[in-house]
């Protein structure tokens, strides 16, 4: 039994295929790269997806040497994400479902990041920290759903670092380059540390950091301070969540989990709290088709599917709105 999963929430159009034992047999991804110094333009990204979709799907199928007819279900991410991108992916998935008479399985993109991390890290019930360009969520599974223990009140961590990086012109990929700059910093400057209960907020931090640059402080020191404040806010809420939930492990997932400095901090945090710490493998950190296929297979086995005519995209779909019958 095979499930083919389609990812298209933001800059990546990806197709993954998994079998009934959750082996990942294909993971082919094509990523739209924004114009230099710019962020993702939703329409441009959607155009990229529609232009590359058929090749990505064909390449994924060729990895198994099967045709689309051998696939048992099509999994599609309906949200959360950028409307134009979601609609492009959904249109393709609906077409495949109707044309080849395959069940269509709806997948929440954020849940997929959690499930691929749980599966690849071999952790049954961890505290999950999902950090990316679109999300910053601390979550655990309680009574049928993933419950949000803490989240960002405004922009996500990945978005904050990327934006700061673009404003100071470090170039792509911003996360790596801002951290390189930060490692050369020596001073910790005053910035706002915004932790509200279990939630964090990053928008004020960016404004203040950019103001320090304008005021003539050394760019390396500002980068160091920005990174330290941003990550400390997250670590503080994660540590509270570990103590509160009593989980035995922390698993980091999402594109921003590629961060070297944050990984180091989380490792120390886990050691201090005497819990295991794992990070999703790099190839499954960013958006990818495999995670949609994997989550789609979990859902499909529990007989989750959706009528293509009702498969509207949900750009604001929260993880705590999704029932998880496979746990």
């Amino acid at each position: 039994m095979y499930v083919l999963g389609i990812e298209s929430t933001a800059h990546t159009f990806g197709v993954g295929i998994v079998d009934e034992n959750l082996n990942i047999l294909a993971n082919v991804n094509s990523t739209y790269v924004p114009q230099k110094g710019k962020g993702i333009h939703p329409r441009e990204a959607a155009i990229h997806h529609s232009e590359n979709a058929s090749n990505v799907i064909k390449e994924a199928l060729s990895k198994l040497n099967v045709s689309i007819k051998d696939i048992d279900a099509i999994a599609i991410t309906l949200g959360p994400g950028l409307g134009p991108c979601l609609r492009t992916g959904a249109t393709i998935a609906r077409f495949l479902s109707l044309q080849y008479e395959k069940p269509l399985v709806p997948v929440n993109h954020a849940i997929a990041h959690l499930e691929i991390a749980r599966y690849t890290c071999n952790e049954e019930d961890p505290l999950l920290v999902y950090i990316a360009g679109g999300n910053t969520i601390i979550t655990t599974f309680v009574e049928g759903r993933y419950r949000i223990f803490g989240e960002t009140q405004d922009i996500p961590l990945g978005n904050a670092v990327d934006y700061f990086g673009r404003m100071i012109g470090v170039g792509y990929p911003e996360l790596i380059n801002v951290e390189k700059l930060a490692m050369k910093g020596e001073k910790i400057l005053d910035l706002p540390l915004v932790v509200k209960g279990q939630d964090v907020s990053y928008s004020g931090l960016i404004t203040s950091a950019l103001k320090l640059i304008k005021d003539g402080y050394k760019i390396e020191d500002v980068a160091l301070s920005f990174i330290e404040y941003a990550y400390s806010m997250l670590c503080e809420t994660v540590e509270r969540a570990v103590v509160y939930t009593n989980k035995e492990s922390i698993v980091l997932t999402g594109g921003t989990s590629r961060s070297i400095i944050l990984k180091d901090k989380m490792e120390k945090l886990a050691k201090g709290q005497n819990v295991r710490f794992k990070v999703v493998p790099a190839e499954y950190a960013g958006d990818n088709g495999a995670m949609i296929a994997l989550t789609g297979m979990l859902a499909f086995k529990c007989k989750v599917s959706i009528d293509p005519r009702k498969s509207y995209v949900k750009p604001m779909w929260r993880i705590d709105q999704v029932d998880i019958p496979w746990r």
Binding site: K187, I188, L193, L224, E228, Y229, S232, C235, E239, D264, K265, M266, K268, L269, K271, G272
Partner: peptide, 13 residues
């Protein structure tokens, strides 16, 4: 003290 915080920020906080 928190090992995961930069020592200067840790002291400050």
């Amino acid at each position: 003290p928190k090992a995961w915080r930069h020592p200067l920020l840790d002291q400050k906080i």
